[in-house]
Design a protein around this nucleic acid. Structure first.
Lengths: 249, 249
DNA sequence: CAATCGTATCAACGCAGGTTAGTTTGATCC
DNA sequence: GGATCAAACTAACCTGCGTTGATACGATTG
């Protein structure tokens, strides 16, 4: 089951068995990729899209001078570059962060879904718009939060997304990102991210060591990062708050 | 013709007469709105979307403490909240900046297009993904550019978009944004935006006075803001560079 | 005409985060 | 065991932007 986690826990877009099967049968290939492998380059015409099954993938804009800004991070279940289907080519690069397993879905198969299964198509559209909503939250983060807030916000978001993918219990999860990766996500230098991580640790807001994130009190961290999960369109029953509360009770 | 400017000048998604007519006939209402009028509030279920005919509209995320980050600015021809159709409700607020004229399109009409005109639907999807591509460029701006660069980048982007909408000649255009608006776009304070505007003027990069933007040398401004228009998916013949060159020859 | 309000402008000061240049830790491999 | 490398961590210094508060300008209104 390649699409098992796709749209999992999202509000109002549950896939029925039929749709699930249609998507599954659209997969033509499964690949295993090493860390830091380029999946897509900006400006190259694409006739397939990539669903992430395992590992972490990043999307980034690069000024070809060493400065790189991540614009998205993807976890298992994300349809990484589904937007390449309507767009034809991408405006940014896509690269694995960790080793990853991906499923390839040709655009010809999506074309068939477009014509024959309009309601499944709308759910695919929805998926690309969640990514856009996350972009907007990232804009808020970069534009209006200080360094502590940015990191806190990102960790809250990641926790919420991993909870809904079934990969976090609401307090702890593995996250194989380096501090340098975090700095490219949060618009900071790696040196400053290091300072921030220490402070988060000192204030008992979050401990991130050897790829393990531990959030003792998700609500406090959320407050520090002004994090409000609404933009993730997560189904009520799976919201990180309710999960965290269920555990702390 | 309400949809005259919609997707104008975009690569590979020209609307044929039939599609144009279908969209036109989906309009049920045209409204005139005053400046700073709220169009949509976050979290409210929507059964219509809004096409902008005249004026400027902004989308923003607000921390309810006075800090506001704009996540998008829309010009005539933009389908401001088309993403509300698949999403159902928005994760942010939408407000006019200037007085504006809008066309309302009910989601029921979009539903009909979804089922009956899959290829028009794909073009609508495309339109929402352009917005996402612009979000990404804004992320780069906020994450990796200094204050001068951010303002320069925004002005280049706006110039390019207005050229393709037929509202800029590539060097000059009217833009009824205040310096405070610019600060909420660029993640700066209005005081610092003022410093930046002076410096842009002193360096002959850009003069912005009483709602009129004048860019003597678009290439120089683009270099300062590391602006590359590819993400706007503008058709070759309408790219701002070629327009600017045509004029300067 | 004066009063008012939104916007632009400027100067003085402080600090968050960048820059530079390291050292330490831990994993992997010979 | 030592060698190597990536990642984490630190300190010292510097600067770009935020903050505060005041003034100027121009449009609108009474």
């Amino acid at each position: 089951m390649f699409t098992e986690r796709f749209l999992r826990g999202k509000r109002g877009v549950r896939l029925d068995d039929d749709e699930r099967a249609a998507l599954e049968s659209a997969v033509v290939e499964v690949n295993t990729l090493p860390p830091r492998a380029t999946i897509v380059r900006a400006g190259v015409k694409l006739d397939y899209s990539t669903l992430l099954i395992e590992g972490i993938v990043s999307r980034y804009i690069d000024d070809r001078r060493g400065l790189r800004q991540l614009v998205a991070v993807h976890f298992p279940g994300d349809f990484v570059d589904l937007h390449a289907f309507p767009l034809g080519e991408l405006d940014h690069d896509v690269q694995t962060v960790t080793a990853a397993k991906t499923a390839t879905i040709p655009h010809s198969a999506l074309e068939a879904i477009l014509v024959g299964r309009p309601h499944l198509m709308r759910k695919l559209w929805f998926a690309t718009l969640i990514d856009a909503a996350i972009h907007r939250a990232w804009l808020f983060r970069l534009g209006r939060l200080d360094a502590m807030g940015r990191v806190a916000h990102f960790l809250c978001e990641t926790n919420a997304r991993l909870v809904s993918a079934g990969l976090s219990d609401g307090h702890r999860f593995t996250l194989a990102l380096t501090q340098a990766d975090l700095s490219e996500i949060c618009g900071l230098t790696n040196v400053h991210v290091n300072r921030v991580m220490r402070k988060l640790r000192e204030e008992r807001l979050c401990v991130f060591r050897s790829s393990l994130v531990d959030i003792p009190d998700p609500d406090r961290l959320a407050a520090r990062g002004q994090f409000n999960p609404d933009y993730l369109y997560i189904a009520q029953s799976l919201s990180p708050v309710s999960v965290a509360n269920a555990r702390s009770r």
